[in-house]
Design a protein around this nucleic acid. Structure first.
Lengths: 119, 119, 119, 119
DNA sequence: GTGGTCTAGACCACA
DNA sequence: GTGGTCTAGACCACA
């Protein structure tokens, strides 16, 4: 499956779809000028209504990330990777702060990072 | 102000209130048997409707975190701190993974942690 | 009735709603900080689905024209009137050009303007 | 290029094609009994699918504007120029009204007309 | 097949 | 009452 949606998350589904697509572009899973899945194909695959995917794609187009091609689908334009990285760091910092508030030790966070990145 | 609500967050306000109170208990800002602000007072302070705070308190009571005292408000019972820490670590791990996907370097994450915790 | 939608126009309904609201703001029919009709009220009045109005409002909010107020509706922020006027003139110019192509005489256009504006 | 299609317009492409051809006939760029470009040729020239041009021609034929000639293409029959002019004036009047609503001054419209028609 | 818009109706958070 | 999101399904233009 192309990606997974968390239907119990407070983050709206259309927003999750937007994020996932941006991530895929950032990771070069999707390259410039490449077609992304059709609205209906993606909707079916992730078990979501067509309108929800359509909204995500429409907003991504407004943001200049993808572009619709008449009668044939959507292609990738590109993303501002620097901004994505900056945003992710900001998000990371917030959770580090709340971890600190919970008195989770620094070394425990380091350990988790090592687990994820490999040592 | 006792704490801050992000009205633009997708996390519902009542949920944010619950989280903030749990955090305060975890941080020992609020201790067992201590009174928490009345529904009315808190609603006024953070600028939300009474019903919203009432819902947060009602759910916290159901979870055994606080308890209403006849005619005089709510007192802290306690929280499962281990669970809160485990949840936070889980949350942390997810964001580390997505940082890795964005090719953010390990040392950059370490640096942010050092900034937050002090070196 | 607050305004009229042309269901036979190629201009999508949500777009017509956006335009009408902007016009009303430009005409001072709607003033800053004033509430606009609720999504459901307007939808009912103009005989359109709630989602269609919701989309129009959402986009107007993104454009900074209106702003949603939690639990109570949308208020007017304001519009870039200069831009609206410039756009309208551009639109006007185009139709003048096509009138010219049809060999409609200049004085006939003047006559129509006089009719509309009063002489 | 014979004429230009605006792919971002809400006016459907087939409709734009119909309008452009009618305009050309009204302007005498295309005269009665003259051949118009073949479906294939026009489709290639303006960069649209054959079906789209075919639909435009089919409708123009139904309206009696053009006529297919067995095995050799389509020829111009003629148009109701009076109706085209009346429609254009109606369209013009509407935009004058909305210009008035925006408080655009009469003399500014006159100025634009003078620019387009030459003084 | 592709995208685009719309309806009718549901369920939720918030005031 | 207010906004916000989502589904199921329809109909259209375009390739």
């Amino acid at each position: 499956m192309w990606f997974h949606i968390d239907f119990h998350s407070y983050t709206p589904v259309y927003k999750q779809i937007k994020n996932k697509i941006k991530e895929k572009i950032a990771k070069k899973d999707l390259k410039e000028n490449e077609y992304i899945p059709s609205i209906r194909a993606l909707a079916k695959e992730i078990g979501v209504n067509l309108n929800t995917v359509a909204r995500a794609y429409r907003e991504l187009e407004q943001e200049g990330v993808i572009q619709s091609v008449r009668g044939s689908g959507y292609i990738v334009i590109g993303i501002d990777k620097e901004k994505m990285i900056a945003d992710k760091k900001e998000e990371f910092k917030k959770i580090v702060l709340s971890a600190k508030n919970l008195k989770i030790e620094k070394k425990e966070l380091f350990k988790i990072i090592d687990e994820v990145y490999g040592n």
